[in-house]
Design a binder for these strands. Structure first.
Lengths: 253, 253
DNA sequence: CGCCACATTGATCCTCTTCAAAGCGTGTGG
DNA sequence: CCACACGCTTTGAAGAGGATCAATGTGGCG
């Protein structure tokens, strides 16, 4: 497996787009983000973060897909959440504790170091208030995704789970302009989908066929096509996670 | 249903105990917590927080059990997590966003207002560094509990799920001295247990009977008795969530 | 060409759900 | 003190959703 090599492209654009979409950034904050460079690339299957890492280096994923996972001793694997382009990894409001889960690259993944962002948002400096706010919204979205996942796994059928998950992925990709209402890249294998939805590979395959037969969606060659997004929303009782700005939005403070 | 009435007991003791156990507090922080008074009580079934509340008033639960829940339109209910004595609700490192889930009292619940704590930990004041740290550890524990829940629901059998959940509850109660290795209060009905584990009531009942027959545990009259804790740990692949202090523990700073 | 990872299919089994009813315990009112 | 009701637990029977096992298909790529 390839490991890591350096690049020199201002790929942070996707992270900027995400943060401006879910919150709002002043020019200074944008500049700070734009300054993040030296993207690194890791190959499929590489562990970007390992579960017991003492310190999770703060990062933005700027290309490719990763997943937060955990294994049971007998090999069963569960995916907690995905990490999609523009999303952050280990950027805490406070100094980072141990990693709570392993993060694996599902496709080749590019990321940039978010150390400067981490430094900026710690403490009180009003210059970075916007950035702090945006990262806060971002992490509250992360929590919302975990709750959706629990809802899917605990109380939805296989059919509903798959529809719900695909809608969530679409909306997360839409935040960075990688998805339209009906089309987006879907590089996951059926095994990945199974580990995310708590199902067996075989069953995922059959449900996807059913959805295809019913002309609700198509999954093909790394692309998803939601033919009837509204029907899917109804099936899954899908409620988009609203990126909510913090309660205390002070005017001119 | 009873609503709310005032009391005047320094019940925050249980919250202090929890925070000193998972982190460490200087005298000033302890004093701040000890100053939290005017406990309120709500009855069973009351919604302490509602899902779309704009602002979640920060609180410590000081007595009784609550649960974070969500419903599907057809009545299916999923419990995301429990809120046990000493645990916090809506105490964020940053101003609170919308509530992500409804919180319901499973038993009569007492709580104190944690507004002063919220105020103290925002910003940079070094007097409250310990408190900030402790609340940070606390919320990282909360996240760990969510991940356990996902693991249970996604990849464990009914049998494993119940063992795992009971062990987690025991350890959370141990933090505040309400549990020993083998005994603790368990006021949940089987329906609650079902909604937490993503199972049907009937099946929960049968698995509990099996565990009883196997002399592994006993659930009776609101009390749990783990007869063979080590066997349960093995069955569930249970790993206690380590309350990890933040990575950057500065010596004499 | 042939390998490899991934997708697909069929058959069978079993975990868990659903429905329906009955038991049990406790608190309330007559 | 008993009758009754209500919430919770327990039991049985039947069925569905999903898992497992095993094999075959398919496409990209060295």
């Amino acid at each position: 497996m390839t490991l890591v090599h350096q690049q020199a492209s201002p790929k942070a654009a996707v992270a900027i787009q995400r943060l401006t979409t879910i919150s709002s950034l002043n020019e200074e904050s944008e500049a700070l983000l734009a300054g993040l460079s030296d993207a690194q690339t890791v190959g499929v299957g590489i562990e970007i973060v390992s579960e017991r890492d003492a310190i999770v280096r703060p990062r933005f994923i700027v290309g490719g897909w990763a997943a937060k996972v955990r294994w049971l001793p007998d090999g069963r694997r569960q995916i907690f959440d995905f990490v999609l382009p523009g999303e952050a990894l280990g950027v805490c409001l406070r100094p980072n504790p141990l990693a709570l889960s392993t993060v694996v690259a599902l496709t080749p993944v590019q990321f940039v170091d978010a150390g400067p962002v981490q430094k900026a948002i710690m403490g009180d400096d009003p210059r970075w208030a916007d950035l702090r706010e945006a990262m806060h919204v971002s992490s509250s979205l992360d929590e919302a995704y975990l709750l959706s996942q629990i809802m899917r796994l605990g109380r939805q059928t296989a059919y509903e789970r798959l529809c719900h998950l695909l809608l969530e992925v679409r909306d997360r990709l839409k935040l960075v302009g990688l998805a339209t209402e009906t089309h987006f890249p879907m590089p996951m294998t059926q095994e990945t989908l199974a580990d995310a939805t708590g199902l067996s590979i075989v069953h995922v395959n059959r449900i996807l066929q059913q959805l295809r037969r019913e002309r609700l969606l198509d999954l093909h060659g790394g692309k998803a096509h939601l033919r009837e997004p509204d029907a899917l929303v109804a099936i899954a009782d899908y409620k988009p996670a609203r990126p909510c700005t913090g309660g205390s939005r002070r005017a001119r403070a």
